[in-house]
Every structure is written in structure tokens, then in C-alpha cells.
């Protein structure tokens, strides 16, 4: 036993045999609910957006550096991979945006009831997807 906390997991079963107590169940045993999905999604999209800032940094630094550097980043952003990354970034941003609005509402004390929690979870998913698609429809139309 490397950790004193491990000692707390050792106990005797009904037959008197020494056993390791089971740990409390985690993600894999719960039925997926919209509330749980949005909570996990908020963190995943947050980390994704942090990685996405690399792209924004590249774009801004290239624009400030030279014509060639800017042409390179524009070429990447216009490629199939670039468009895919940008679309995922837009989707992550909008999902995180609406989920963040809900966090602000919680901080103001609103929306903790089961019913509101469920409704707003579906709202975050729906609004995130719809606005991301709308942004791309407008973006492609002006391109």
C-alpha cells in the first residue's frame, strides 16, 4: 500500500475474508442525461477552445509578420482540414458560450430546479448547434 488512503479500502466481507472495498461507481454506470452531457461538454469545449487560441495566435502573428506568413495561414484556413478545424472551433465556441450563459444564470441563483436544469441543457445543445450552423451559412454566403 503506497498511500494511507488505500488502507481505508481494506475491509472484511461477510465471510470474514480480507477484501478491497469497491470504489463508488463513476461515469460508466450512469445513464447519460442532457445535464451530464452539457456539464462534460462545457469542460471539453473549454479545453478545445484553449487549443484553438493557437490558431488565432498564428493568424494574428502571421498578419503582423509578412505577406508570405499571412498567405500560409490563409492557405491552411482555406484547406479542407482548416475549414473542418474552424467549424469545430465555431461549434465549440457557441456550445461553450450558451453553457457559459447558463453558468452565469446559476451564479445569479437561477435555474437549479430539476425541470429548468433539463430544459436549459437541451437549450444549450440546440442553440449551440443552430448558431454555429447559422454563422457558417452567413460566412459562406459572404465568401
Amino acid at each position: 500500500m503506497k498511500d494511507v488512503r488505500d488502507a481505508l479500502y481494506v475491509a472484511r466481507n461477510t465471510e470474514g475474508k480480507l477484501v478491497r472495498r469497491p470504489m463508488s461507481p463513476h461515469l460508466q454506470v450512469w445513464r447519460w442525461t442532457p445535464a451530464m452531457a452539457v456539464s462534460i461538454m462545457h469542460r471539453v469545449t473549454g479545453v478545445g477552445l484553449a487549443i484553438g487560441t493557437l490558431l488565432m495566435t498564428w493568424w494574428l502573428v502571421a498578419a503582423a509578420t509578412s505577406e508570405q506568413a499571412f498567405a500560409n495561414v490563409q492557405w491552411f484556413l482555406g484547406s479542407v482540414l482548416g475549414i473542418f478545424v474552424l467549424f469545430c472551433w465555431t461549434l465549440a465556441l457557441m456550445l461553450h458560450f450558451f453553457s457559459g450563459l447558463r453558468h452565469l444564470a446559476w451564479d445569479a441563483g437561477w435555474g437549479f430546479e430539476n425541470r429548468a436544469y433539463r430544459t436549459t441543457s437541451w437549450f444549450v445543445i440546440g442553440a449551440g448547434i443552430v448558431t454555429a450552423l447559422l454563422i457558417w451559412i452567413v460566412g459562406l454566403a459572404v465568401w
Binding site: T53, L54, M56, T57, L60, V61, A63, A64, T65
Partner: peptide, 13 residues
């Protein structure tokens, strides 16, 4: 570092 790079680039432009 990333924040500084972005800010300097924006200011240069």
C-alpha cells in the same frame, strides 16, 4: 506567452 504574442501583433497592425 500566447496572450503577449496576440497583443503585440494586434498593436503592430
Amino acid at each position: 506567452l500566447l496572450g503577449l504574442l496576440c497583443i503585440i501583433s494586434v498593436l503592430r497592425l
